[in-house]
Design a protein around this nucleic acid. Structure first.
Lengths: 332, 332
DNA sequence: TTGAAAGCGCTAACAT
DNA sequence: ATGTTAGCGCTTTCAA
């Protein structure tokens, strides 16, 4: 007595049309005559047919879905990137599925595998995975990486290292001699690149550059950084990102350190909120939206033309707001 | 260069067995010779083959992926909700796929359909869809909604309407007589609920309550709201959300209106950044994380026990910070 | 134990 | 606008 679940064929037979018409009625209703459409729907109801979305994914059309993996959705930095990627995907009638790796490589790779099973490709933003793992994934599935450079994998990066150099030059120009870099996660490729830039430019300019951290890339991490900072002789700091800088700013201020009079602070990324603090944060900004758009383009290139997508490096610039000033006279 | 995702056929070719043997190796390992089994597994690793849960799973829940649809990822309000949902999903070894509907019902329904095809259920946050559409979707797939109440669909909401009442009482208590509500999107269920609460509580307390808007639920919308506000006689405003409140605050200040001395402002949601403005924003807060967790629980309940998940209403409270004070003497 | 071949329910070219 | 046909990746007969 076990009748199988009704299929589009049952519906088709019932109302004398082809199975494909039934299929269309449910997936592209606009492409079928309204009259037929109603007839099909009625027949479907009678027979008790329910569309089986899962089977759809097995069909050749693929899923028209792309995956974007970020390390922390709560980091406002990603918002414009996500929006841009989303818009770009939508323009080609693709859906973007987003997932958060919670700063954990284990979670990242597991989410990625899970979603890659049902999507047509993935963008990894600020990935914590090793080069090898990423290369391996890229071998089998369309992949693009953001804020990371790996040979053979389309990479979209903002040259924040160059931005860091500009920041250091700015600090040097207004008289600072001893600065600190507030490090983000140690296993972050881009964190390494930023610190190298600070170190080299400081050396070239004859500044003392101290490495502090690593700190969690959020406000809490900034609180800790501030505590460490107050034990240092530095008169300025460049932070891995704005979240750390904002946390540092707040802790410094609540400890009675005046910014920028007593201490100068520079963030990175120009996130939402960087212009909300008092003083507003001087920070390093780049075209985050282009990152998202280009990453989606790289994916589409791989899906459609089966060619590797293009890599690109975008310029970063310094947004000078209120958190930087010459050091206190006593320290010059 | 980039071959498509490896299939059992690739594995089969690689180690010289039939595809069916590869299939058996992964679905009924006991029915294949241990030696062959190992050979196949090794080949699968080399080729990078990963079994496709989709192609086999008939039962919902087999893809171990959940969908979360938000209206705007750039809205910091969602961050804690997303993080909590993600964590809760992860705890049951599920992956969360997130998508942004860009405030557009069209995009929302299309993304939803797309992802529902390959995931086991979906959470709609602050959905812009009609009750009917949502009910219809809920009929076929596990669904939970956040910040919205619909009969028969598990609903998780923070009682921000109650929060609005508290906000109005607070304003009344410190002497305001004429207030304004800065409306969010007109087709938002929760916006209606908030305005009703403001209207009713104002009436009960003998205050004048003006409805302004609708405004886009972002800072830009707040700028427009500020312009409208300056034409009104109100001495205080309650905004649909913090983003509008922050935008209003900034525009007001740049027009020379002092907050809270000249004008009081209350936001809603207590997002990241609400404590960054000067003055810090008085706002309505609720347990956003519990929303995310409970929504995932509701989905799991539907997937596992095939029962409808539970609905819940969480309390909201007023976080009194610096943006509210008694009205200027002249207006009392 | 293994291989060949026939589906599973659905979609998308390509005709008509 | 609709029908025909050829798959999608995998599982499952059925022989060998």
């Amino acid at each position: 007595m076990d009748e199988a679940r009704p299929t589009i064929y049952d519906v088709a037979r019932r109302c004398g049309v082809a199975a494909s018409t039934v299929s269309r009625t449910f997936s592209h209703p606009s492409r079928v005559n309204p009259a037929t459409r109603e007839k099909v729907r009625a027949a479907a109801d009678e027979v008790g047919y329910v569309p089986r979305p899962l089977a759809r994914a097995e069909a050749p059309g693929r899923t028209r879905t792309l995956t974007l993996v970020v390390t922390d959705i709560a980091n406002p930095y990603y918002a414009p990137l996500i929006k841009a990627a989303q818009a770009q995907a939508l323009a080609s009638d693709y859906t973007l599925a987003l997932t958060d790796s919670d700063e954990s490589p284990r979670v990242e790779v597991s989410n990625l595998r899970q979603l890659l099973a049902t999507t047509s490709g993935a963008i990894l933003a600020t990935s914590r995975l090793s080069d090898d793992v990423i290369r391996q994934l890229a071998q089998h599935r369309p992949l693009a990486i953001v804020n990371r450079e790996i040979d053979g994998v389309p990479s979209l990066v903002v040259d924040t290292a160059g931005g860091m150099r500009k920041a250091v030059r700015h600090l040097a120009a207004i008289g600072h001699r001893r600065i600190a870099y507030l490090s983000g996660p140690r296993n972050s490729w881009i964190n390494g690149a930023r610190w190298q830039a600070v170190r080299q430019e400081s050396a070239a300019l004859g500044l003392d550059a101290a490495f502090l951290g690593p700190y969690a890339p959020n406000r809490q991490g900034g609180h800790e950084a501030a505590d460490a900072l107050m034990l240092q002789r530095a008169t300025a700091a460049v932070a891995y990102n704005d979240l750390i800088a904002i946390g540092t700013l707040q802790r410094l201020q609540s400890a009675g350190v005046r910014v920028p009079d007593d201490f100068s602070l520079i963030g990175c990324d120009d996130i939402f909120g960087a212009d909300l603090t008092v003083p507003a944060l001087t920070t390093i900004a780049g075209p985050t939206e282009r990152l998202g758009r280009s990453a989606v383009d790289a994916l589409h290139a791989q899906i459609a033309h089966r060619t590797a997508g293009d890599s690109a490096v975008f310029d970063a610039h310094l947004v000078t707001r209120g958190s930087t000033a010459p050091p206190p006279a006593a320290s010059r």
